[in-house]
Design a protein around this nucleic acid. Structure first.
Lengths: 240, 240
DNA sequence: TCCATAATCTGGTCTATACCAGATTGGAGA
DNA sequence: TCTCCAATCTGGTATAGACCAGATTATGGA
């Protein structure tokens, strides 16, 4: 609209950015509607949506399905190499955690899990599916696959708190080594629905595969995070 | 178009996915143009682009600016906690690495770097900006900020290979501890241009801050990766 | 006061079209 | 054969609408 040779939607992105910064819109605050913004900036809804998508990709704003656009809260710091429970590190950072168990069941090891765990296909396995909130925003869903050989009766416990804490305190289980994988992906299907985001929304996948000192499979953890929800932060080689 | 209650662009996403899988389109192979696809699937370019964006978010395809859509190569496995050079682990995985030094200069510590490094503002600092390729696709750009107090004359060396290897072998420097940060972001400005992607393209940011045993700042590494280019893979607590 | 319902507001999806700018290609001329 | 330039192809940007479905709000009756 003003600068030359610079697409309108990028100009809008920058103007909206400035506006959010200077107006000091606070976390979780709602933006004006797309129609209102397109009038205010003399453009169409399509173009406004392009600009908003840019800010969404930056992690500055997020959308709540058919409710509007909101300012993204600060990222949660997270160290996947540690066994500190979700509730604890969320609280430590001054946020309010909540966990919902969407389902938990005893099932059988599928082929893909057999391949990475070393368990035989068809062996019993616990499967817990949970959704985690920070300040009432659902940030991730998590599948836990736990070896019942090491922790019989786990499913009758509450799974709304730290599973690892329970494994440690009740069953005296500690992982000897683990493989961690992290990569960006698109949230879709079950995960997108559970997080109430659009199909294909940007996410971050974190997988943790844990074994005990004998090399026995303990647990597989597959986490699907909103892309703007966390900042992985690891300190290496220090006894702080 | 066929199933009910399921948006066209998601149907197209699935059909294109199947098509790519069954046709076994190989890595880096070009898809038909958007216009051709929109005719073939009896829809408009806008809707086809929505479907393509979904596959892009999945990491299945990527776009080359105004050239077309291509099938994404396999993700590179990467362990940011190790000091193995880029060239080495790319080669180990059967790919072909290449590094371009876009610029290198002696400059002064800016405030933001002072804050995290402990160096005073205005202190001399080396700044190297490089672009890294795998099989001739530019996957990341990287800023290195290196403390010249520990490695005088570094800039006169070639920086097209591993900086860490050079620090280790020539200057006998090894990091005693380091802070690593990882989070998804949007590639923009200089980084987007250098990687030849659109403004706001999805990326993954990896930062490594290294100190020696006395707690002196050694180096800061800020990497901007394409979101579909890598899979972070870390093994913890094992002497494999 | 409470609850069911209707009106309204929101983003989500989709069509049809236009023009732009960079990348590629093909052909004419040296 | 080589080089340069024009034509063409590509995705990128933008307009102007339309309708849908879920979420919210207002309303009116019990």
């Amino acid at each position: 609209m003003s600068r030359t040779d610079y697409p309108v939607y990028l100009q809008l992105r920058d103007r909206l950015w400035d506006w959010i910064e200077t107006e000091q819109l606070s976390s979780q605050q709602r933006l004006p509607s797309e129609r209102e913004l397109s009038e205010r900036f003399h453009t169409t809804r399509v173009t406004i949506r392009q600009a908003l998508s840019q800010l969404e990709a930056e992690g500055l704003i997020f959308r709540s399905n058919r409710r509007g656009w909101y300012v993204t809260p600060e990222r949660l710091r997270y160290d996947p190499s540690r066994d500190v429970g979700f509730n604890r590190y969320v609280t430590e950072q001054g946020f309010c955690p909540r966990t919902e168990t969407l389902f938990k069941q005893l099932t059988e090891v599928p082929p893909w899990l057999s391949e990475i765990s070393g368990l035989d296909v068809g062996t019993p396995i616990y499967h817990v599916f949970r959704r985690r909130y920070v300040d009432e925003r659902g940030l991730l869903v998590e599948h836990n696959y736990i070896n019942p050989a090491h922790c019989p009766g786990l499913l009758s416990e509450s799974t709304d708190l730290s599973i690892w804490q329970m494994l440690r305190e009740k069953y005296d289980l500690t992982p000897e080594h683990r493989d961690i994988e992290i990569y960006p992906l698109a949230l879709k299907g079950l995960e997108a629905e559970a997080l109430n985001v659009n199909q294909g929304a940007a996410g971050l996948y974190i997988q943790r595969l844990s074994f005990d000192q004998r090399g026995d499979f303990l647990e597989l953890d597959r986490e699907y995070w909103l892309h703007d929800a966390l900042k992985i932060s690891v300190r290496i080689g220090d006894r702080h």
